[in-house]
Design a protein around this nucleic acid. Sequence first.
RNA 1: UGGGGCGUCGUCAAGCGGUAAGACACAGGCCUUUGACGCCUGCAUUCGUAGGUUCGAAUCCUACCGCCCCAGCCA
Length: 561
Amino acid sequence: MTDIDTSNLDFIRTIVAKDLAAGKNDGRLVTRFPPEPNGYLHIGHAKSICLNFGLAQEYPQGVCHMRFDDTNPEKEEVEYIDSILADVKWLGFDWGDNLFYASDYFDQLHDYAVELIKMGKAYVCSLSGEEMRQYRGTLKEPGRESPYRNRSVEENLDLFRRMKDGEFADGTYVLRAKIDMAAPNINLRDPIIYRIRKVHHHRTGDKWCIYPMYDYTHCLSDAIEKVTHSLCTLEFADHRPLYDWFLDTLQTPCHPQQIEFARLNLNFTVMSKRKLMQLVQEGFVSGWDDPRMLTISGLRRRGYTPAAIRNFCATIGLAKRESRIDMGVLENAIRDDLNDRAPRRLAVLKPLKVVITNYPEEKEEELEIANHPKDASLGSRMIPFCREIYIDRDDFMEEPAKKFFRLAPGREVRLRAAYFITCQEVIKDNSGEIIELRCSYDPASRGGSSPDGRKVKGTLHWVSARHALDAEIRLYDRLFNKENPEDDPEVDFKENINPESLQILSHCKLEPALAQATANDHFQFERVGFFCLDRKEGSPKRPLFNRTVTLRDTWAKLVKR
RNA sequence: UGGGGCGUCGUCAAGCGGUAAGACACAGGCCUUUGACGCCUGCAUUCGUAGGUUCGAAUCCUACCGCCCCAGCCA
């Protein structure tokens, strides 16, 4: 074998590199991403997608198949197929012509089953579900053989044909592999390979009333597609002997290698499709694409980019030990991507009016501001300025705390790309709430610096009151307020939902340029965070922005202490 | 002694017998017309525990401890 450098490769990539170097599988590399179309894809799937498609991309001959594991028509829907395809594509991956469905193989799978029966390796069993469970034994005790285990090949063939022909009711018969009822691995205790289900299948219609089980279908589908490396999560490790048994017993085109890795867990969220489904169906969120959901569609709507998700998947690593990644790592990935690319804008979330008393009433002017502080290629734009502006309430303190260097009575600060202003007067309503600030400006500081070299410590974002776009902004926080919402089996995970995960702000003030935003744009609202137009409810007529993620906020951290 | 998997920094994660990478987080500092970004510095005498082999062990051996998965006609 040639020596290859496997440093910095995860354990799966190391196996693949070695296999390829050794000329295994004729030098082919074929992976597959095999979702069941029974729900929407989430960030955990992204890990698998990036692994399977990403790995294939790393070699010139690498190919990754998109294959739906659609063997349980009762739970599957075309809606899910469509969304899954759209999500994988959006993430930036391409399966070319390799779009497959396990249901495409139902004929072959049926023939293989007949083969198994002829070999005396499968039999039709008439045990009821309850009986089946009893015969299976327990984790510590071996199972007992079914009384139907030794039916003749002819009888099995006949019964299986009649199962297929719809002669029997659901649940009356199953086809089982004849392996070993005493096997310590329960998956080997004569597992079911076909069950009767007289239901319509979203792809094969009413052609079949018997449907193959996962264990039987998956390995054979892999073999039919000549997959070389079949990557799946840890819980399938116990199924590997069965995967291998079918492929060793039957004459198949090849024998793919199943390798298991740890699934992704993130803190402050749940990751199973079943639980996400509950959140949707019980109305805890607005849908699968609610921006608080860590579904691919939710992340997209929230403003995450494909590159950020791919980078995230690359940084979390791949191993067999179970882990729980900090949500901060995901947030860091999107900040990192958007920081380089997102044009800057000025937006005031909690407006506080400022009147610049020495600025003429009728005067208006336009000031130039760069779209990005470090990337001149993003150009610049003009922002209007006049006597009345808005600043954020958080940027003023009547009695400034220590180290607070924003606006306060008598203090001078800079309005970003505009002027230095000094607070002269604080206006309050009857209840004592501050409703307006009266400031003076220094005309010589136009653009944001003073010719006399005077320094100010704070720079505030602002929006011209006369020109501002009135908008709704939705702030999102983690959906759960507990690091692991599922850790207590006594408590329903939904009890740990964060009641403040969605905060709606109306009458936010945006600079006029934001009126042109489309759902595919990403912006940094300076000093606040990254935002995008909501792709579902937002439009030029209805400015509605989602906060993708906040900026890192050292001041907020100081305040907390 | 049911079977399978796993235990390296707060969180991920390299390491594969030659003397603990990297990332995030955290703490300081520099820079700054975003308290952002960027930059610099610090951050495991120790690898679940205990023995053993060895000149040398996170890496090999033994025993123990802990965590996860499996008894769907789900995937």
